[in-house]
Amino acid sequence: MTFEGELSDLYQQVILDHSKHPRNAGSLDSANRRAVGHNPLCGDQIVLMLEVKDGVIADVKFQSSGCAISVASASLMSEAIKGKTVQEAELMFRKFHEMLTGACDTSSLGKLSALSGTREFPMRVKCATLAWHTLEAALNNPNQTVTTESDA
């Protein structure tokens, strides 16, 4: 692919749309899980709030400041995990992670596959995974701050 092609793959319409109009942005009074994600290299930040009921992510909201990729990723994630069980969300994260780190079948990822273009921009992969690492933290170590620099 030409670099022009890779660039328009990175900034697909879906991503531009979600970065300009993030879904589920805001704050969630009923949240019982909350985590803050931070990318110290670029200052991107996300606060993720979840309402988990009977093992299901009943509602989700986030507040984020960052680049188009990180905001779009948080927005797409919020749509994808809403109404899913915790296990389903965790499986999704694993698939998503595989998509960005190596070749993998993206068909099961639906709209999330729009972020596969970041694979060609290694410096930007962390922008796409920040929201997901924050989700992991919210589900496993609620009320923690995670940074993109602690994972290997």
Binding site: L7, L10, L41, C42, G43, G66
Partner: peptide
Amino acid sequence: CAHPHDVATILDSIGVAVRSGHHCNM
């Protein structure tokens, strides 16, 4: 209209190397 990282990625696509971020100046 754009975050510094996105600006730097677009500029890179035309061969212009700039830095984006906090520049070790938090």
